[in-house]
Design a protein around this nucleic acid. Structure first.
Lengths: 336, 336
DNA sequence: TTGATTTACTTAATCGATTAAGTTCATTAT
DNA sequence: ATAATGAACTTAATCGATTAAGTAAATCAA
């Protein structure tokens, strides 16, 4: 392995000089710096991130936390899109990313300990169980964090606008003549609460009453559970004309169930999803859904985290609302 | 930050003793070791992975390489499943994972340099452009690697059995009475070549002749391109009764195109996919496809890589064939 | 010309942990 | 009684890079 010592010998200068030359310190003569840089290249020198991290206390490495409790964090397109954009932006800014988990081999540690152990400069927290005290410990620690879709008391977070998204969907189906709506929601997280509240509020504003039994719980990203909820809705005395699904994938479970009952979408029943993952737009029929700006969220999360890391003194926590967009699709029939 | 120095002061022993006690060295009195361990816990000591890595030359960190050239590596379910299982197995064995990319911020480096810079103990290479000389450089370097779905001359790799998978699919549709098959394949990688060869060989073995124009190129994971290929196939003088798609997602593009022509699946046309991602089994109709053991592949990749890292002297490169499984679905109609 | 300043380095300490090579003291063997 | 052995430590070097503080020579000011 080529180290600065090798370069210093080759150039007949001290290691300090080499280090400074490579880092562009002002007190090195231009021609010396040039000579050193040439030698470094000639010898195939690569800085050692580990050694540098040890000395300067910065690893240029940020952790990403995708808790598995939600059931297979990474492999849902919404989250993998976020992961990919976090990765891309972090790399653009010179940071690598490492996954943070509970427990590593034999050592049992919580998220904070893991991040600390790896010297992460900061952590992006997505898709986590925000009730978990281990998350709270990490967020309230000295390690900079950015959370996605959840805000810890005056800490930085990136939020998708669930209130606006749900409102847009409700108004869209309203404009298409629907007055009897059902809403299948996911587990009771703060995101879910916002969506339910926005659903109810928008319905109220439009003068729609939502009969009992038309707001039903299910599990995010679980077609089976949304299928069951769909069946329950179909058995209601007064059948709705449009069903809202907790996410795009859950819509597929609903579709199966509807098909089983001989109900065609959108002829006999309109449906909408949520997330607007790429998949939703290549399905037939193309899903009416609300696209959360996953790439934007990931990018912003990385950018803000790194800004916080690099300017801790002037940092002001902020909550960024990511823009979404209604994708009209073709699963809502105009029954006006 | 609590370091071994703090513990050594608290216990009145040298730092060496603390280090040895915490690592279970044999020349420390049991009661001393116990006392040290207690103090470490009491002070909230956490080992510093960076410092350890610098000294011992091992980072307990493995790189994963998902090249983006294939267009959005991580966000395809097949790859995210692999990623997740690599992560799970690596963590079980005490290793963290870091993404390896070309270029990091201002520094331009290739994969090898990046892995070296981060002191990765090894790298799992998936979804990469194996023609890229940068990949070859990494694989032929001193850094242990495991490749997925591609074998570099006598290096360790995990392969899904494309030959067997394609054969199973062809035989399945044959048993369902199909004699006129079309195959839309992805970009010309070694995987694709194996699938095409196996498709042709199995057809030949079954006495099926594949008319010209029935093997068409498209792009993996791109519904649009498979839609175009589908259209071309529909225009053939002798229309096939079953279309093979390059992957499960591409099938969706085909579906749209078939629908546009008023062709119902499987009534008027049978189709099969490839990959067997979870999505394929919640679609309606449920896709007939061949499941590649993504979790098994990821797990094996991590396991073998770490074995290689920990026992470099006794290591023998090997090629592991992951087991797949035909998922019958309901997109192939029996026209026997 | 002489003291002050600037330039371009070098020296040496340091980050936190590991480990080969001592050292000390108690125990055992002869 | 004395040497040899072993247990339980300590000392000090080391991994590779950074950086505050020091120094020698060159340049400048008056």
């Amino acid at each position: 392995m080529v180290t600065i010592t090798d370069i210093s010998k080759a150039c007949g200068v001290s290691r300090a000089t080499v280090s400074k030359a490579l880092n562009g310190a002002p007190d090195i003569a231009p021609k010396t710096a040039e000579r050193i840089r040439e030698q470094a290249k000639a010898l195939g020198y690569l800085p050692n991130a580990t050694a540098r991290a040890l000395k300067v206390g910065r690893s240029y490495n940020i952790g990403v936390l995708f808790s598995d409790t939600t059931g297979g964090g990474i492999s849902h397109e919404y989250f993998s899109q976020i992961l990919e954009s976090v990765k891309a932006e972090a790399e653009r800014l010179g940071y690598d990313i490492t996954f943070i988990s509970k427990d590593l081999g034999a050592m049992s540690m919580d998220y904070y300990e893991h991040a600390k152990y790896r010297n992460c400069d900061g952590v992006v927290i997505a898709s986590a169980d925000f009730q978990d005290p281990a998350i709270a410990r990490l967020v309230t620690s000295e390690i900079p964090t950015v959370t996605l879709d959840y805000t810890f008391d005056s800490r930085t977070s990136i939020l998708s606008d669930n209130v606006r998204g749900m409102e847009a969907l409700v108004r869209f189906v309203y404009e298409n003549g629907h007055r009897k709506l059902a809403f299948i929601h996911g587990e009771m997280t703060s995101v879910t609460q916002k969506r339910i509240a926005s659903f109810k509020k928008t319905c109220a504003a439009l003068g729609i009453t939502v009969p009992p039994g038309c707001i039903r719980p299910a599990v995010y990203h679980d077609p089976r559970s949304s299928g069951l909820a769909t069946r329950a809705i179909l058995e209601l005395p007064e059948r709705p004309t449009c069903i809202f699904y907790p996410d795009d994938l859950s819509f597929l479970g609903g579709m199966s169930e509807l098909e089983r009952h001989g109900i065609a979408v959108p002829k006999d029943m309109s449906v909408v999803g949520y997330d607007g993952i790429p998949l939703s737009q290549v399905l037939r029929p193309k899903l009416t859904t609300y696209r959360q700006g996953a790439e934007q969220m990931g990018r912003e999360a990385a950018r803000l985290l790194i800004e916080q890391i690099e300017h801790p003194d002037t940092w002001l926590p902020q909550q960024v609302m990511a823009e979404g967009e209604l994708l009209p699709g073709s699963t809502v029939r105009n029954i006006g």
